[in-house]
Design a protein around this nucleic acid. Structure first.
Lengths: 163, 163
DNA sequence: CCTCAAAGGTTGATAGTGTCAATTGTTTAT
DNA sequence: ATAAACAATTGACACTATCAACCTTTGAGG
């Protein structure tokens, strides 16, 4: 019953009736219609992320860590922030990756408290294959008409910029 | 080192260089550009799903289960399929939800092997609030120009239909 | 200089999530 | 009637996650 923080917030429940499932789209406004559809497609797709990670004998979280560890070194605490998890969790996570020779702890020169994480040769190689696999577009994208792909890309570019 | 199945597949690595991070978009084709952008936005958003679930004192998986349990009763094995996980996992999952009074096991009349899952009153109420919260569109959608929201909705509708 | 508060990381306790192998009970096909 | 197949559970074990307590190092003020 515990183990999950109670950040909480008194949530105003949408008065005009609550969507009761994934597929229905009511009269709740444009943004919500777009979001609900996007959400349901994405959700379907995300379901096989664990299987994708398993192709490389990684857990989903380990895959996520490798992904974050691309550009240079990262402090453990920084990684904890990226993962939105407790620092103590990262210790074990990195222990296991280090035991597999994918990652190295390296004490910082500037501040001897912090340990910087860097990919090993093997880690970088595995990460490359993992990224290539992750970025393969799923069928629901590849099977879109080309003009939809263009529109989607442009919309997402704009969204990323203003975000 | 174990605990993750080795489904595996000899994966053709994209020859034209491997994307090394989330944000870069190379010359890898329209579908991949669109997908990479979508993925990076979605990924950012999905990071706070655990916090969202925690608002209701649910783990991410429990939230997922409640979401699936909307329309009528579901056999445990069916739920295992939806979650893409082992049936034995569902036992404990449902145990905890049942202990909290959100869900009920009900033996099927037709086949006494199967147990049907139904939401209790409290479960349905909680699910309603959870769904309303989940379908609140995130900023990157609400802050789009209206014509982008329309286009996005229409693209996603078409994608859902052909999927 | 010295102390003390704050920060980075680790450890131990405890719980949830997930797999696999083995088991029990029920159904279905031969 | 027997055997094969299926639904759910149990037990063993590993990974993910949190919290509290701890140690070392750092940085600020007295």
């Amino acid at each position: 019953m515990s183990g999950y923080s109670d950040s909480h917030s008194e949530q105003a429940v949408r008065p005009s009736g609550v969507p009761s499932g994934v597929t229905e789209v009511g009269e709740e406004g444009l943004a919500q219609q777009a979001w609900t559809l996007l959400f349901s497609l994405l959700h379907t797709h995300m379901r096989n992320f664990p299987a994708l990670a398993a192709e490389f004998e990684l857990s989903p979280v380990q895959a996520h860590v490798l992904r974050q560890l691309g550009e240079g070194a990262l402090a453990m605490s920084t990684l904890a922030n990226y993962l939105s998890c407790d620092a103590s969790n990262v210790t074990g996570l990195v222990d296991r990756l280090e035991a597999r020779g994918l990652v190295e702890r390296r004490s910082s020169e500037q501040d001897r408290r912090v340990k910087m994480l860097v990919l090993t040769e093997a880690g970088a190689e595995l990460r490359g294959r993992l990224m290539a696999r992750m970025f393969e577009p799923p069928p629901f994208v590849t099977e879109m008409p080309e003009e939809d792909q263009v529109a989607l890309r442009d919309i997402m570019r704009r969204a990323l910029k203003t975000q």
